[in-house]
């Protein structure tokens, strides 16, 4: 008799577990006390553990801002390193709550894979890096070259299209992670390395002799990179989207990690007040408190600060703002208003 009860209980528990995946991500994260954030396996400047094992980088900044907004603690994060191949499975299966991992926003990923890209935090394009000694100055000279690529990426498809449309041949060398790509490229097992231009700059920064390598001028694709969440949980999607927008608006409105405490006491600019929660209750509309954006910005600074600190011109990665400048400075970074 007892056995029957136990079996029955197990069955019921099993059936309940099958249906549990559809509960709200926000509640899950709050109950867990930790945000599971999918990141890359290591790309200096964007997401890489430092000497002490703490994850640092531009994409990490987005994770920290979301954790700060939702949980009030920018360190309450479980970073889940994912490869180009495993990232979507990790997100779709609920292993991670969000992906902040230089992932290109495309139609099929948005529509067919059922993901929700909440915005763009870096406008990128695919480029090629070659050793200077190869004497190549244009991607059009790469006919017959051996090309190292990370598999499971849009770059793989762009590469095939680029060489095909230019009637050129190439030999692809598929590689799982950026570290392996770097190893093969440096050993000369491939002539050129291709990925997003920002990724190339970040990879080159980690080389022993970065000046012996050049990034070719051609950008062969549009690669809008941004954080993404699962389809179907609008509330969670809104939280991640507006956390990113808060970071962008903060730069536009001049809110920095240095002056945020001052501004949080109240200003004459109503939009700053709305963002920082001294006026209205924007956070309450998606289940957070009034201070959510204050904590998100305070965690690592605004968009511009994150950029300068991790990948800006004064860092080894050395990227200029370019397309990623604020819209008022001629770039594409633009947040809808907080109203």
């Amino acid at each position: 008799m007892k056995k029957t009860i136990i079996l029955g209980a197990l069955t019921a528990a099993g059936l309940a577990a099958a249906g549990a995946a559809s509960a709200g991500t926000l509640d899950d994260v709050k109950a867990r006390g930790k945000l599971n954030c999918g990141v890359s396996t290591g790309l200096v400047g964007f997401a890489a553990p430092d000497a002490n094992g703490n994850w640092q980088g531009f994409d990490i900044g987005v994770c920290r801002a979301v954790a700060a907004a939702v949980l009030g603690d920018p360190t309450a994060i479980e970073f889940v390193p994912t490869t180009g191949k495993t990232r979507f499975t990790a997100l779709a299966s609920g292993e991670v709550d969000m992906l902040a991992r230089n992932t290109t926003w495309t139609f099929t990923r948005d529509v067919d894979l059922k993901f929700e890209f909440v915005g763009v935090n870096y406008y990128d394009g695919q480029g090629f890096m070659v050793p200077k000694s190869l004497g190549v100055t244009s991607a059009k000279d790469l006919d017959g070259a051996t090309v190292c690529i990370q598999t499971g990426t849009t770059t793989e498809l762009n590469l095939a299209d680029f060489f095909r449309s230019n009637n050129m041949n190439y030999e692809p060398v598929p590689i799982e992670t950026n570290a392996e790509a770097q190893q093969q490229f440096l050993a000369g097992a491939c002539d050129t390395l291709t990925t997003d231009a920002s990724g190339l700059a970040a990879t080159r920064a980690a080389f022993e002799n970065p000046h012996d390598y050049v990034i070719l001028p051609e950008i062969i694709s549009k690669e809008p990179l941004g954080p993404l969440v699962r389809h179907g949980d609008q509330q969670w999607g809104d939280i991640v989207r507006w956390t990113l927008n808060a970071l962008i608006s903060a730069e536009e409105l001049g809110i920095t990690s240095a002056n945020i405490d001052e501004l949080a006491k109240g200003t004459n600019n109503p939009e700053i007040n709305r963002i920082l929660g001294t006026e209205g209750d924007l956070g309450g509309m998606f289940g957070l408190d009034k201070q959510w954006a204050y904590r998100a910005i305070k965690a690592g600074g605004n968009y511009g600060e994150l950029f300068e600190k991790n990948i800006g011109e004064n860092t080894p990665v050395g990227l200029s703002r370019g397309l990623n400048a604020q819209w008022r400075d001629g770039g594409l970074i633009y947040s809808p208003p907080f109203r």
Binding site: G84, F88, T108, R109, D112, L113, G152, L157, P174
Partner: peptide, 16 residues
């Protein structure tokens, strides 16, 4: 590029 690399790797990833 064996069958795990093509069908179970890139194809799986690109088509979901």
């Amino acid at each position: 590029m064996d069958i795990t690399g093509t069908l179970g790797g890139i194809t799986l990833n690109q088509t979901g």
